[in-house]
């Protein structure tokens, strides 16, 4: 029996959940049943041999790479970068070009929880009617600092997907993040 997340039917449902997350930044979206591995489920849904994936913290094992039908790529060139959000940033992602901003990477970060953290952020931008509050737990402060640099020249930039065991929350490059006290 192939694990659920590698099946087409699951991936269709998971994609709709990810799509909803990117359409409405800052909202917490629960994936269909994925055996407590939302981040891997997202990779299974979006990545295959025709894309590229970096795993700088070596979170994936050999069986995952075989399933994804892909070999690891350096973070500087990868379309997807998979990391623990609790650890600091230590790479420079592809930001795309003016003519091809879609080459800007998608970062998939794992976190313990998407709400209840000490620091709250106000999100505004496309997909958000007025503003939404977001308080992740354990996100290393370097991520949003770097994100501000990476995304300083729209349309260039990176798009983020934060994942817990069960749920995802997206921060496309178009979202403005402001720390509030």
């Amino acid at each position: 029996m192939i694990d659920l997340i590698w099946q087409a039917e699951f991936q269709q449902a998971a994609f709709r959940c990810v799509l909803e997350a990117f359409s409405r930044p800052g909202t917490i979206n629960t994936l269909p049943e994925c055996q407590h591995n939302a981040a891997l489920a997202v990779l299974a849904t979006l990545v295959d041999g025709e894309s590229s994936l970096a795993d700088p913290q070596q979170l994936l094992d050999n069986s995952h790479w075989l399933r994804l039908q892909i070999k690891p790529t350096a973070p500087e060139r990868a379309a997807f970068i998979f990391c623990q959000g609790t650890r600091p940033v230590d790479f420079e992602p592809n930001l795309g070009t003016l003519a091809s901003p879609e080459h800007g990477a998608t970062l998939v970060l794992t976190l313990d929880a998407l709400k209840g953290g000490d620091t709250a952020y106000q999100l505004t931008g496309p997909g958000i009617e007025t503003a939404v509050l977001f308080a992740p737990q354990g996100l290393d402060i370097s991520w949003f600092k770097q994100r501000a640099d990476w995304n300083s020249a729209f349309p260039l930039g990176v798009d983020m997907l934060l994942a817990t065991d069960e749920a995802v929350l997206a921060l496309p490059r178009s979202t403005q993040i402001k720390e509030i006290n």
Binding site: V18, L19, F22, P101, E102, T106, P126, D159, P172
Partner: peptide, 8 residues
């Protein structure tokens, strides 16, 4: 589609 949403 996801990139299209991220870069409206």
């Amino acid at each position: 589609v996801i990139k299209a949403i991220c870069i409206p």
